[in-house]
Design a protein around this nucleic acid. Structure first.
Lengths: 229, 229
DNA sequence: GCTTGTTTAAAACAATCGTATAAAACAAAT
DNA sequence: ATTTGTTTTATACGATTGTTTTAAACAAGC
């Protein structure tokens, strides 16, 4: 691959070299800890053992590096989620799917990725919440591009599993589910605050516990949702 | 008040002048939109119609301004929440309180503050989620100082309203509730994404709808929580 | 009017920011 | 061995960062 001349087109679409991979991984590590703006390209380059100019060479401007970082976190996770959902649907060819299974198809891959993931998706919780809390067009662009379809697919499945409930309830519940999941997933990197204040009653370092508590809570909230008017 | 000489002690504890108030309000406005690090002290000073040096004069270093900004958002909101909780308890002197009322004492003041608040607390959702997603000691310090007691008070009340349920379930549910609430409160400033993708089924610009959907969801998730073993 | 103590303003500090340029190092192919 | 295309480095640019310094404006008391 050759570096393009015009600055705006200088991004390497592949970014497949070893150096580029190290840069992206270092960027994620530092972004997840301190946020996008508090991390300089020099910090990233140093952490990756590379030259600052290598970042523009492979990714272009910093904004594009951030976009790529967000994408690299969310894309593989969405693939896992959709695969899990597809499996649930395939398992019940008659169309009668259980709401528990649908909810779990969203929650289990996500929680496991954050706890035991080895790729970029292990930074999902922090990177995503960070992106959520900034209101910048170039970030919104990536977020919308990566989640709108996923949302529709899951809402459709949830609604199918709960034919008596209003579609609006399902949309609301989907949003609540994502919010609750994100929030609890941040607990480990906040020194297990919930575990501490609950005197150890809530083991937020055990992915199985987190998954089962989340699924139970969401399914209950959904199952008794207001029926169609 | 006089400016102290030592830089580390230069913060004015009161910060009661008109200029200081304008600075704090401008800081909140800009922080909420772009995050702490993407906003410079010059941006804040310009937005407030003040001199950059006035910021160090009244607040000291930028980190202290950020801490003060977070505090100014969360402190009045916590007062509202505790007042609402106190009212619920006072209304039922025999100790039999309804879980709906307790949950609502958390959710209603928070949602209303974000929708129709006029003070610093109107920036709660963005500032808090921003603080959550950064892992910096000086931010953690403020967050812990401002929420640990509140959490214990609410969990105690929720547990009292649901004597049959395990305390652990209540702690989990409290965390889920906060997460779901924060996430949905960010929807309006994300161009009402949920409203859009749900074809208008979820009116995320109506505080009453948000409150009732949230309360219903959380109470359902809680009410059927696993009983004490 | 002069003297306090307090608040604002202008200007400058060193440090760091994102990015660009140009040259060096490298690999593969002829 | 030399050319060719790609990757990496060293270095420099102008702009902006947080903060300090110094002085000017201001209000209140006597």
């Amino acid at each position: 691959m050759k570096p393009l001349v015009a600055p705006s087109e200088r991004t390497r679409e592949g970014a497949d070299s070893r150096t580029a991979a190290r840069i992206l991984d270092s960027a994620l590590e530092l972004f997840a800890a301190r946020g996008f703006d508090a991390v300089s390209v020099r910090d990233i380059a140093e952490h990756a053992g590379a030259n600052p100019a290598a970042i523009s060479y492979y990714f272009g401007a910093k904004e594009q590096l951030i976009q790529q970082a967000i994408r690299s976190v969310i894309a593989p996770l969405n693939a896992l989620r959709l695969a899990a959902l597809g499996e649930v649907v395939a398992r019940n060819p008659d169309g009668r799917i259980a709401i528990d299974d649908v909810v779990r198809a969203m929650i289990e891959p996500t929680v496991r990725a954050c706890f035991t993931g080895t790729g970029p998706e292990r930074h999902y919780a922090r990177i995503w919440m960070l992106s959520l809390s900034l209101r910048q067009p170039y970030i919104d662009e990536v977020m919308t591009e990566q989640t709108d379809e996923l949302l529709q697919r899951f809402v459709a499945a949830m609604s199918k599993a709960l034919p008596g409930r209003s579609l609006a309830s399902v949309y609301w519940a989907y949003d609540f589910m994502i919010g609750a999941m994100l929030h609890i997933l941040l607990d480990p990197s906040r020194n297990h605050r919930l575990k501490r204040v609950s005197s150890g009653l809530c083991d937020t370092s055990n992915p199985d516990d987190v998954i089962s508590e989340l699924v139970n809570f969401v399914v209950r909230g959904l199952h008794l949702a207001r029926p169609v008017p």
